[in-house]
Design a protein around this nucleic acid. Sequence first.
DNA 1: TATTGTTATACTCTATAACTATA
DNA 2: TATAGTTATAGAGTATAACAATA
Lengths: 157, 157
Amino acid sequence: MKQLHESAPVSQEADVSSDEAMREHLGYSLKRAYMCMHRKATDELEKFSLKVRSFSALSLIVANPGIPPSRLAEILQIERSNLVLIMDELETRELISRTRDPHDRRRFALNATLRGKRLQEKAAAATLAQQTQITARFTAAEYETLTAFLRRIEEEA
Amino acid sequence: MKQLHESAPVSQEADVSSDEAMREHLGYSLKRAYMCMHRKATDELEKFSLKVRSFSALSLIVANPGIPPSRLAEILQIERSNLVLIMDELETRELISRTRDPHDRRRFALNATLRGKRLQEKAAAATLAQQTQITARFTAAEYETLTAFLRRIEEEA
DNA sequence: TATTGTTATACTCTATAACTATA
DNA sequence: TATAGTTATAGAGTATAACAATA
């Protein structure tokens, strides 16, 4: 009969080791799927000298003209202090502008320049094209189901 | 007629700013869902003085007795060099043991101690209980569908 | 007194190169 | 010559506290 407390097994029989034990943890599978998408997006965005982070910020500024940094940080769930460097870089590259809000001179209004809008458009097209490749085997209905699930996790947590 | 190139809008009308523009990017929604789970797991594992990273490593050692560090790093998709500190901490806390593989003295065999197994069991129970809360409104079928989708993303990417 | 943007800083995570011992 | 484990280190990413300007 096999001992309950066998001591220090030394090597795996062949190659049976796997991460199956972690698969019951939803966060584990979520992270891995996220990392796959992140790697792909990073590669794609490198062509535009953008990081995923700065692309997200630029996209939200394009979509929300005049948004103040504090609101952008809130949406992106990052610290205002960490957003500063991202904005600095986007502004230096003349992709966005910072203008004072005359109604509340503590705030800035962020706006994408024409150049910023054009770059965002191209970068979005590139990442979405590549996303389409990855999700090619998903039907439209399946894709909708997936994104609905992801939203529910955010809402429930 | 509205100008095509209006200059520098300054503030949003009320509070319409949102991240809706990023929602067509699957990676964005994946990251946010992942971050929710990660935050919750971090809080829960803090009670056991474990990080998500070290809990994952410990769990895989429990599930794969005798696994060598190089294989563990491969499964976790992290650098061997970064795994060393994680193993050091787990070993110092006597949750795992490192023993030389006599067949290949370059390798170590990692094994969870009884203490390590017990801690892993409790920590897994805690995180899974909390995961159940988050996914409470998912039917079993929906949950299966979600995890299958996540696996497909990993496989396609 | 509170908020916005900012600076400085520390802490964690991750990536890379080089070393040793073994094969 | 190649591989496993390790060390050291640099670079990101992230979090916190404090400050000036403004409300």
